[in-house]
């Protein structure tokens, strides 16, 4: 549900990091904040936590201006993963323009991944969004650990559904930017189809991606 104000020439896009508890959603945002160049990126806002567990959400904003003068703000949100915070998840998921699902690769967490994805589907339906029309990327995090679900198995399972899946270790910092880039690509295509970013605003896909996902040297 792209928020677009033609008179003000403003567009706000909302991307949500979803997933089971302790799968690394906040860590993903922290790494993005560290890895990406500062230009056009706002500060990471971590709302109050309890024992380092997210109870509200985290927010990492991006800001860019298209050649036409269209101001685009992109806000990355996390949701609390704990089951009891479902009302907060629903509130954050309102009007999302894309979702990253952060799964925990550990074999012991398979059931939690499943339950959380099920919860995502249910809540999307509740807030009036269709999961099959929403930009969606699945990240299997914690690939640096042992006792994890083999990549082949994951690709077989998710490949059939046609969902882009990215392997990552947010703690080590790899796969995080790739995940964001994969979602940003889908979101660009999604927005371009409706608001002609390239034709009407002169914003090329590569420019869009470069502005969002340029990594700091060294």
């Amino acid at each position: 549900m792209i928020e677009f104000d033609e008179q003000e020439k403003r567009m706000v896009l909302k991307l949500v990091y979803y997933g089971p508890a302790l799968s690394g959603k906040t860590t993903n945002l922290l790494r993005l904040h560290d890895l990406l160049v500062r230009e056009g990126r706002g500060e990471l806002m971590v709302l109050d936590t309890v024992d380092d567990r997210t109870i509200f959400f985290d927010l990492l904003p991006f800001f860019l201006v298209a050649p036409s003068g269209l101001k685009i703000k992109i806000k990355l949100y996390t949701v609390p993963g704990q089951v009891k915070h479902d009302a907060t998840r629903k509130a954050v998921l309102q009007r999302a323009d894309g979702v990253v699902f952060i799964a925990d690769s550990q074999t012991a967490e398979a059931a939690n991944n499943f339950a959380s994805f099920d919860n995502l589907e249910k809540n999307l339906a509740v807030v009036g969004l269709a999961i099959d029309r929403l930009p969606l990327v699945v990240q299997f995090n914690k690939r640096d650990l042992r006792e994890i679900i083999p990549e082949g198995e994951i690709r077989r399972t998710w490949g059939e559904a046609g969902v882009s899946v990215i392997m990552a270790s947010a703690l080590r910092g790899w796969g995080v930017v790739e995940t964001f880039r994969a979602l940003a690509q889908q979101v660009y295509d999604h927005v371009d189809a409706r608001h002609r970013l390239r034709e009407a605003h002169g914003l090329e896909r590569d420019d869009f991606l470069r502005k969002l996902t340029t990594v700091v040297d060294g």
């Binding site: 928020e3 959400f57 949100y77 309102q94 509740v126 807030v127 009036g128």
Partner: peptide
């Protein structure tokens, strides 16, 4: 379900300021 959805829509977080 429809009423629930409508009720939810009004509780959006993070509006532009």
């Amino acid at each position: 379900m429809a009423t629930e959805r409508e009720a939810d829509i009004s509780f959006v977080v993070g509006e532009e300021k």
